[in-house]
Amino acid sequence: MKKEIWNIEQTRELVISRFGEDQLELAKPSLQSVNDRLTFSKFHYLEINSLFSAFKSSHLGEGETILGLSESAEKEYFQMMLKIGAHAVACLQSLHSVGDILANAIYFSIGMNLSLHPLKDREISIYSVQKKLKGIPEFNEITTEIDLLLESNEYLYLVAATNSSKHRNLVPPNITEDWTGSKLKLHEITFEPFIHAGKSYMRCPIEEPLKPVFEKFSKLIVNSGNTINSYLIKI
């Protein structure tokens, strides 16, 4: 089955043909950045797993625990956790930013800024642009897709963890060990519990919020891009 893609070059050409070169200059940075940010989030996620896999291969054989590490291995462990923490925060922030960057890409590509009541730059977000898109029938499927993303537990977790890390305290990753034998994995990378806006968030494996949100954004970006192109061809 052929993987669906977004022809961004076609988007650029259509923006020029409908609105001119100046409009493309407004849209172009976000058109580039939306895929870059998603790629960055994937890079950081893969680095987290790569770092831990290398450490496990060197120091955690079958049934060995972190508590039994030698002094030198323990130093390596703390160095690894520092790197994993940096990648985890960067992954959260990159993934969280995708929505607003996509909103900017849509907003300027279809000329929303040329309307009688344009948004101020600081007002452009996934929420404000989605609201405007609900008045355009061609974007009905996209607004439904955005609704499903924004209302998902994984996205709400991502937003809370990112905002907590930005404004109050980091949501640190940790390595948990299952000594009960009830889990498939002896060792697991998790986000620690935290509280944000009065709500408690439990410890969870890092892939639980990150992978579903990444997959939803990957699909949403392609579908949005193709809808932009279809819409610009019609108008």
Rank of each mutant, 00 (worst) to 15 (best):
N140F: 09
K131F: 04
L114Y: 04
Q93V: 04
S58G: 02
E62D: 13
G63W: 09
L148F: 06
L38P: 04
S182W: 12
A105Q: 10
Q23E: 14
P205C: 08
L67C: 08
L170Q: 05
E145D: 12
N229Q: 07
V159F: 07
N113M: 03
V222W: 00
S17P: 02
K120M: 10
I16S: 05
L31E: 02
I106Y: 01
L67F: 13
R122E: 13
A90C: 04
A88E: 06
F78E: 14
V15S: 03
N113T: 01
E145H: 15
S33V: 02
N153Y: 07
E9N: 09
I16V: 15
L133V: 06
K132N: 08
L149N: 02
P193S: 06
I124G: 00
K83H: 09
S152D: 14
T11P: 06
I48C: 12
I136G: 04
G225M: 08
I8F: 00
L186I: 15
A27V: 03
F139C: 04
K185M: 10
K3N: 01
A197T: 13
K132S: 10
N223C: 03
F214Q: 11
P137F: 02
K56C: 15
N174D: 14
L46E: 15
E138N: 08
I84H: 15
I142W: 03
D36T: 13
D22C: 04
N140I: 07
I5A: 10
M202V: 08
Q93C: 02
L220F: 00
I142A: 06
I189K: 10
R12Q: 14
N169G: 01
R37S: 11
H167A: 05
K28Y: 13
H196F: 15
